[in-house]
């Protein structure tokens, strides 16, 4: 299917039986269990919520990925991403990044032991020349 169609029909899973064209807003923090050790597939909205799942599946489909996580802001997404790394890890990032990411890297992640090099990532030789044994990622 074309991208334009996937923007509208990117997720085939149905979340209710009313025939509603628009996905319902499941405004629920938690979900009741049908029995001990049995789940409807939804337990608590921080883990997953049907409305958010529909969005995440749509975005994953559009990007050609297998999974997408929807965060409360872009900065929440990049802050969570930093948790993939451990103290001592080095990341090479574009020197053209948003100021908020710069603040995250150098005021918070650095304090937590991560190290950053900002380079012009449009020039691959500059990325390569900054790779060290502890380099774990490149962000552009």
């Amino acid at each position: 299917m074309d991208f334009t169609t996937l923007c509208i029909h990117g997720n085939h899973r149905k979340y209710d039986n009313t025939g509603a064209i628009s996905v319902p807003i499941f405004q629920s923090a938690t979900f009741a269990h049908p029995g001990v050790g049995i789940s409807t597939g939804y337990d608590y909205s921080r883990l997953q919520n049907p409305t958010r799942e529909h969005l995440e599946r749509t975005v994953a489909k559009l990007e050609g990925g297998i999974d997408a996580m929807a965060f409360s802001s872009g900065m929440a997404a990049i802050a969570a991403l930093m948790e993939l790394f451990s103290p001592g890890d080095h990341i090479i990032a574009s020197d053209d990044i948003y100021g908020g990411s710069h603040r995250l890297f150098f005021s918070i992640s650095k304090k937590n032991g991560l190290d950053f090099s900002l380079v012009d990532t449009s020039d691959i030789s500059r990325i390569e020349s900054h790779i060290r044994p502890k380099t774990k990622g490149s962000l552009c």
Partner: peptide
């Protein structure tokens, strides 16, 4: 990390994004 740190998008804001992405 996502489920543990908890900065997930609310159901209402997810719905707004679903609507926006259609166009």
């Amino acid at each position: 990390i996502f489920k543990t740190t908890g900065a997930c998008l609310s159901p209402f804001h997810s719905w707004l994004l679903i609507r926006c992405i259609k166009t």
